[in-house]
Nucleic acid binder design. Structure first.
Lengths: 113, 113
DNA sequence: CATGTATATACACTGACATGTATATATTGC
DNA sequence: GCAATATATACATGTCAGTGTATATACATG
């Protein structure tokens, strides 16, 4: 779906990845993040806007600060998407098992040399 | 970790995302992918190299063709990484309890675009 | 060996994006 | 209102990644 690749693109940037990881500790003001990341404050604000537009973070005003925190829904989306691939291998294992059954009946060599 | 952001960056490209989705059906030759994606064959080969270097796909020669398929380990990595965020929310719920969740729902901040 | 097919690579180009500097906006305290 | 702090935005710049064209390599077939 469209939402998932938006989330991926947002998190694929190294700085935004670090920001998300840092937010595991809880709400973060912009200044807190600036201290942990080696870029200017303006850049952090831009990254936070991108993360916000992707639905990964939410903002809550607190005085003159803005407290950002992770949105669970975004990671639920990611988990559901990855889950789709897990089903893929489960299906392949089923087919592989069936193929083994057939091969046991008539042991054929591979077509590749 | 370093592996996970590499996987994210590889899958964040729209074309590579589509390639990965198409491979859910099983092994794909390069030509198969060229038919489904709106770019030149050379571009597909480059994307496949990036996916391969990220550990997302593996290659198996078959005559003059190269059959690419998904590697389960990469998606296990992704799942484990997302799982780390799920633990984050579980911890938060433990600390604050369901009462604060209700308060947060009543005073929900608005998101700008 | 010659031809066709399948895939990879070298090269140049272009557009997008992340960054820094500077400035605007908002909030608090005096 | 004024100064200080915190955050957002406008602008110019440089870099990087994806793309197409052209070519190289590998394999198959006759």
């Amino acid at each position: 779906m469209e939402t998932q690749i938006t989330i991926l693109q947002a998190l694929a940037d190294p700085v935004r990845f670090r920001i998300a990881e840092a937010m595991k500790a809880g709400e973060c003001a912009v200044g807190d993040i600036v201290e942990r990341v080696d870029i200017q404050q303006s850049g952090v604000s831009r990254h936070l806007r991108i993360l916000s537009q992707a639905g990964i973070v939410q903002m809550r005003p607190d005085g003159q600060r803005r407290l950002y925190s992770l949105r669970k829904e975004a990671f639920d989306q990611l988990e559901a998407w990855v889950e789709g691939y897990r089903r893929h291998w489960e299906a392949r294992l089923d087919r592989f098992g069936a193929a083994l059954e057939q091969n046991r009946a008539s042991a054929r060599p591979r077509e590749k040399s």
